[in-house]
Write a protein that binds this DNA or RNA. Structure first.
Lengths: 185, 185
DNA sequence: GTCTATATGTTGATAGAC
DNA sequence: GTCTATCAACATATAGAC
């Protein structure tokens, strides 16, 4: 009996991907069990409910996003950090146009329920708003939260359009537009 | 036996609302039957499958949106028409912040399936892109489709943020920003 | 800790009386 | 055209042997 098993990790990994590709409601626990190579009955040893697993999925996304922002902060200045963030979105534009933005998917779907899971998903988007606000603030701009709101609105809408029409190009173009907008602030 | 029954209409009405509030996947046919006062077994006389009903729902949304755009066109000029469109979004900002944009909800959720229903939902968003593009074109702007893309991106992203944080204000603010952007084109 | 078998409920969809 | 009764499949979740 191994003291540590990688089953929990494999379950979360599979759930992260399947929730993104099919949505939370349309992904069954047997789907997740199958994709992670864990028998269905054993899932409940690691997660008492499906919501519990979703919670772990969101935690993983929060951690992943935090790492991404830390990577962006390696740039020379806050404006370059914002540009690096936009470059990252463009980098993922293929996945986003195929399956939609994983964060938006969770926020949109879970906010239809009245579950506590919705609030948890909202933290994800809140984290991104907070980070971009901070970059505008460091740039010395006034009303940084309004600027962040506009940036995130535009890029999230671009993700929706890119997904709907299967055109990653839309994310590229709107990211370029946002860079120019930031330059002219 | 009435030659015409309003049951079909009541079913579509209930489905339009429930799909918006709970999503397509999380709305059961018995929910719809209950809310429209039609026995479950009778639903299948009007719609052979759930997808059939969804098709009728999207048709209804297409028609509703077309009427809305025709209303916007009563303005004096294409720029005023665009402003009227933005005013309409602000008017619905309460509903949108509660349940999300009904069009985005459908596009996002149905594009997770590989169903033909996804293409049908995409027509909805395409209709809006097409109309706004036409307004920019009538204004004599170059690259009108790019302008439409940016306008729709921003407002759809604003809807997501407004829904996530339950802040209709976000739709108001981004609509105002877009008006100013259009003024300075 | 792991897995098989199964309980329990809900879904989309059908059969058939009226 | 309308409605009751019900099926078959699938969902989440549990029991209990190993």
């Amino acid at each position: 009996m191994p003291r540590t098993s990688d089953k929990r990790e494999r379950l979360v990994d599979a759930a992260v991907n399947l929730f993104h590709q099919r949505g939370y409601g349309q992904t069954s626990l047997s789907d997740i069990a199958e994709h992670s190579g864990v028998p269905l009955g054993n899932v409940y040893y690691y997660f008492k409910t499906k919501d519990d697993l979703a919670n772990a999925v969101i935690d993983e996304r929060i951690h992943h996003q935090q790492t991404m922002f830390q990577h962006c902060e390696q740039a020379n200045n806050p404006q370059a950090s914002l540009f690096k963030f936009l470059d990252t979105l463009v980098e993922y534009s293929g996945d986003i146009s195929r399956y939609g933005c994983p964060i938006a998917s969770l926020c949109q779907e879970l906010n239809k329920d009245e579950s506590e899971l919705a609030n948890k998903a909202d933290i994800l988007l809140g984290q991104a708003i907070k980070w971009t606000t901070q970059q505008f603030k460091l740039m010395g701009k006034s009303e940084p939260s309004k600027l962040s709101q506009h940036l995130m609105s535009t890029m999230h809408g671009a993700s929706l359009l890119a997904n709907t029409f299967s055109k990653p190009r839309i994310i590229k173009e709107e990211a370029a537009r946002m860079k120019e907008w930031i330059n002219n602030l």
